[in-house]
Amino acid sequence: MSVSMRYQNMFETVSANNHLAYIPFVIVGDPNPELSIQIIDKLVESGADGLELGLAFSDPVADGPVIQQATLRPLANQFTIESGLNLIGQIREKYPELPIGLLTYANLVFAQGIETFLNKCRNVGIDSVLVADCPVKESRLFAKTAKDCGIQLVFIAPPDASDDTLQQIAQNSQGYTYVLSRKGITGTEVAASKAKTDFLQKLRQYNSPPLVQGFGISEPQHVFDAANAGVDGIITGSAIVNLINQHYNNPQIMLEQIGDYVRSIAEAAHTDHGSVA
């Protein structure tokens, strides 16, 4: 099955204006299904160009304390993978052109059968799947099935990866390549470092899809730094999830603060950054 054109279309529009794409991240179903939909609506109306949605897993080893809290909350609340995917289906119906990526862990893809899982993803309108604990060297477990199901597999490029690895990542990642601003796990405690740009150039040389930077991006200044480093888009996760952690008992305040925050990042992303590359 052929993959969707949503990422390609979105990046073309964004780069035509010399903007960065802004892809916010939240855990789907958090803190509950109803509020989760309201949160996602808020992300979109405040300027998101795409969505990266995390699927709650009991053992999220790539995540820091902020996202761990958010991932365990729906799990304690009768959340199921089935209900999470159905919720994404509702989001897809509302926003037919919006690129939607799923961020998950290998065991959730594997447990019910790789083909079953990825077909469900395709059926609810997910464009890409990033498996947080599947490095490119293990990608063969999922790659063929993903292709058959029309799902784009996204891989993560760390700043200190070898040239060989960067080449494999560039060649295997589809939709976009998730580039790390720093080592470690998700969270805003350690800010993005702005020095590393050579690995971004290498990824481009190896014909990577658009580069989207994540981990440690929380302020508008980080967005300008990312633009200077030459990426095509940015992801913020922990900063938004932190607002959910703090205010989920007071939905009105939570939604207002998420709206304000996402607008501030979207504004920075949607500035004319000049032409790069």
Binding site: F57, S58, D59, V61, L75, T80, I81, E82, Y105, A106, N107, L108, V109, F110, A111, Q112, D133
Partner: peptide, 21 residues
Amino acid sequence: GTEGIIHGSRTHILQTKEGQI
């Protein structure tokens, strides 16, 4: 347990049908 992937390894795991450990 049933087959799955945890802590870096494809192995046997005590897990739910949906893959939560």
